[in-house]
Structure formats: C-alpha cells, structure tokens
Design a binder for these strands. Structure first.
Length: 270
DNA sequence: CCCTCGCCCTGCTGGC
DNA sequence: TGCCAGCAGGGCGAGG
C-alpha cells in the first residue's frame, strides 16, 4: 500500500527512465481507474517530453513540455512496472519512450487515478487545494500540529491520516510514528501535551526518511519500479505485529479505529 | 465545522 | 481440493 515513502521511491525510479525522455507511444487499456482517465490522455502524452518528476502527498507528478502534468495516485495496489517482459492483466496504462523503455501502470484494485493538470495551476487543482504541509518540509512543525489539534476531541490517529492536516501519511507510518513518539493512538488530539507533539513531528520525519532510504515498505503487491522489494517492512516496530513483544517489554495490540487496523503498545504509548 | 461510517475494487489468506 | 468470510485501505460522499 503505497504511502509517501513508496510514492517517493516510485517517482525516483521512474525518473531514471522518464526525466528528459520523449514519450513515443501511449496505450490506454481501460477507460478509468477510480475515476475516468482524461479523454485526451494518450493524445496529450504522445510526443511530449518529460521535463521533470515530482511528488505531492501520495501523488506522483510527471511534468511535460506541454504545460501539463500527469498526476497519478497508486491507491492501494498501484505500481509502475519497468520494462515488463510481458504485459499483464491490470497494466492499465503503458508508456513507451523514444529510447524504447516501456513503463506500465498496474493497479489490480483500481483505487488509483490518473489526471492531467495544468502545471502552472497544480496547487489549485481540486485534490491538492486543501492538502496540508509535506511532513518532510519546513512548514511541518510542532506549532502547525498543535494548531491543527487544538480543540479536537477525535483520536489523534485518524487525524494524522487526514491529508488536510499533514499530507502523505497512511496507516503504516502513522502507527509507527505514534509508537516512536510514545503517544497512544486513541488519545484525543487536543489533549496531547506540547512536549509530546514536539516528539511527534521528528518521529514522523524519521520514520518516513528511514523508509525512503530503505526503498519503502512492501506488503503483498507493492514493489519498487525496478521490481526489487523495499525492505522497510522489516523495520516496523508495531505495524502488523499483533501479539508480538514490543521493545519495551509490552505486547503489541491491534484495535480498529475508523474501520482501520491500529497497532500499538499500551505499555510505552501513553 | 466536526465526526463517524460505508463504499469503491480485487486478490490473497485462513478456517472448515 | 473447494468454498467463503475476512482483510488490506486512500479518498470521498453521506448523514448525524
């Protein structure tokens, strides 16, 4: 399930094949994912030159010399397959560069999306307009989080999944960051002490940075573009470890918040 | 505005 | 071996 580190890893992998490349051929193998593909997707990309790649929250950005950016979201099962030997089921969009590299966007569960957005107006694009700060950027500070939490009675964990508060966190890294910061996931956000919020910000940054360095996490159907598996999953301290021992001597528990699994240790998260 | 809940979709896993 | 329930979960809309 691609969260920020997996998207970052994907974008970096794609850049090796796409940055500066001319897109020679485009195959659109179905009309939609979560929402319809742009009707002119193939036409807009064919013959275009990629001027750069980037990421915003969990979205990947492929900028072109036609003042438009292809914005993709990997949803839960999306991945780019690089130089596939054969095309597979769910290779919904296939790009071929003039140099002959083939890149296929594969998404079995189809929770992902592909859009074309005017590059100059990216920040105002609907899904981007209300996004909170990048967790690895300068605007993500304890003061920002304290302001976002003020007066909120909702548990902190679902608030950290709210992309308007901070953009790019998903279930895995929220669980891991709260554990590192020693904060229980069901703590009402507005009641968290300033000192704990001050621990949470660097905890979020650290867990993301470490995962990016490791090439992302891997669960089931996620793989890096080059086909290798990210190995950050081995570094999870609570996620997916229900019943296992926490480093503090406690036991990792699994609960459900907002319909999603939460992993935590009641002994060291207060 | 705040908060919770359910839906979208497919494939894998575990229980019987 | 087959069948089926449960689970994974980001984003978004509905409803209280």
């Amino acid at each position: 399930m691609p969260e920020l580190p997996e998207v970052e890893t994907t974008v970096r992998g794609l850049a090796r094949y796409l940055d500066g490349a001319r897109i020679a051929r485009v195959a659109v193998n179905r009309p939609d994912l979560r929402r319809p593909f742009p009707v002119d997707l193939a036409q807009a990309l064919t013959g275009a030159t990629v001027t750069g790649l980037g990421r915003r929250a969990k979205y990947g950005l492929i900028h072109t010399d036609r003042a438009r950016t292809m914005v993709f979201h990997l949803g839960m099962s999306g991945r780019w397959r690089i130089e596939p030997d054969v095309l597979e089921k769910h290779d919904h969009l296939v790009l071929e560069t003039q140099a002959g590299h083939v890149l296929a966007l594969n998404d079995a569960r189809r929770f992902g999306s592909v859009d074309l957005v005017d590059t100059a107006a990216l920040d105002a694009w609907g899904p981007f307009a209300a996004l909170g700060p990048e967790p690895l950027g300068d605007a993500f500070t304890p003061e920002h989080l304290t302001g976002a939490f003020a007066g909120r009675l909702a548990p902190v964990k679902p608030l950290l999944l709210d992309q308007r508060i901070v953009a790019g966190l998903g279930n895995i890294y929220v669980c891991e960051a709260l554990h590192r910061a020693g904060i229980r996931p069901d703590k009402p956000a507005g009641t968290i002490a300033a000192k704990a919020v001050a621990r949470l910000v660097p905890a979020i940054r650290a867990v993301l940075a470490e995962s990016i360095k490791a090439g992302g996490s891997t669960i089931r159907d996620y793989a890096q573009p080059n086909g290798e598996l990210g190995y950050f999953a081995a570094a999870w301290r609570v996620y997916g470890r229900e019943g296992e021992a926490c480093a503090c001597g406690g036991t990792v528990s699994r609960t459900v918040q907002g319909g999603r699994s939460t992993f935590a240790c009641a002994r060291c998260q207060k």
